[in-house]
């Protein structure tokens, strides 16, 4: 599908399938087209071109066709501030035609599961950010949807709440709910998802399982070194002394060392000290999706990681 807003192509000819029971990650920097894609899939936006099938139903022309099958957790909590947590859940259940007794039982059950039972009778407006996000997820699954759309579920909340929410998502996945998760937290996608699509500037650049995505970096060994007093010709000396390694300057005083064989730190540190360079830190890097993302998507991924770090600091 494709979606344009005026001259801007927000989503450009993307195509993908999500299998039943799968936790599918949609990963990309801010403004990549994640929310536009999710809005089209759930029926809050119309595709400019293309087709959408959800649960075997064609939603291209009639976005309402599959709305009984889906649950949506938006990037901002959008429940009713004047209602209590319990009333919010009951109201959301009623929107799906669930009878009074059943929705009350289900609301209590979910408040218990999400650790919100004690706050059930408090107004939503008085909830903390983490509690609001948890209740919004509970509202998204109150009608037991087959497919759950989660848009940036852990953005802007504290570490403990984010951990709880990741655990809840994993539990939902185990019960067989198909989950479409958009996030810009690479580690979150890596930890939770079965398959991941990388989206950059409205294009899907790669879709694969986490295992397959990690494969190219799994056979490599990497080391991050932080040094001081490094001269201008240090890189050249290192390359000639250790031709089996690849040396990449990352930032001022930081250097990434990559090798197909295990890297012995001792000779490297001794060499540097002989050159008058002080080694402050030498840290082994685990193969990560972040590295794959940088490789696949290029410069924009670096910007995304910087963005994440900034957000992490401000949080």
């Amino acid at each position: 599908m494709t979606k344009q807003f005026g001259d801007v192509t927000a989503v450009n000819d993307i195509s993908f399938s999500v299998y039943q029971g799968e936790l599918f990650g949609f990963l990309g920097p801010n403004g990549a087209g994640k929310t536009t894609t999710i809005n089209i899939l759930i029926g809050l936006a119309r595709p400019g071109a293309g087709s959408i099938r959800l649960g075997g139903l064609d939603c291209s022309r009639n976005p309402k066709a599959a709305q009984h099958l889906i649950g949506v957790v938006p990037d901002e909590s959008n429940l009713y501030p004047e209602l209590t947590g319990f009333d919010n859940l009951c109201f959301c259940a009623a929107l799906y035609g669930i009878g009074k007794q059943e929705r009350r039982t289900r609301a209590r059950e979910l408040l218990e599961t999400f650790g919100l039972a004690e706050a059930a009778d408090r107004r939503f407006a008085g909830y903390s950010k983490g509690m609001k996000r948890k209740l919004t997820i509970a509202a998204g699954i109150i009608h037991r949807p087959q497919v759950l759309f989660l848009d940036e579920p852990t953005t802007g909340i504290d570490v403990a709440s984010a951990r709880q929410i990741r655990q809840l998502i994993a539990d939902l996945h185990r019960t067989g709910t198909t989950i479409f998760l958009t996030t810009h937290y690479i580690e979150e996608a890596e930890r939770l998802c079965d398959r991941i699509a990388f989206i950059v500037s409205g294009h899907i650049v790669r879709v694969d399982t986490v295992g397959n995505l990690l494969q190219p970096v799994q056979g490599r060994h990497r080391l991050m070194m932080t040094t001081t007093n490094a001269g201008a010709d240090l890189h050249e000396s290192l390359v000639s002394a250790f031709p089996q390694f690849i040396f990449e300057p990352v930032a001022d005083g930081q250097m990434r060392v990559t090798s197909v064989a295990p890297i012995r730190v001792g000779p490297l540190v001794r060499f540097l000290e002989d050159q008058g360079v002080e080694v402050v830190e030498a840290r082994r890097l685990q193969p990560s999706l972040e590295e794959v993302f940088v490789q696949v998507t290029g410069i924009e991924a670096l910007a995304m990681m910087q963005n994440n770090r900034d957000k992490g600091r401000s949080a």
Binding site: I42, G43, L44, K64, Q67, H68, I70, V72, P74, E76, N78, L79, Y80, P81, C92, L95, Y96, G97, A139
Partner: peptide
């Protein structure tokens, strides 16, 4: 404006 109307638009009712 507060986006709670989206919740209604997502409900399976005409």
């Amino acid at each position: 404006k507060s986006r709670s109307f989206e919740r209604l638009l997502l409900a399976p009712i005409p």
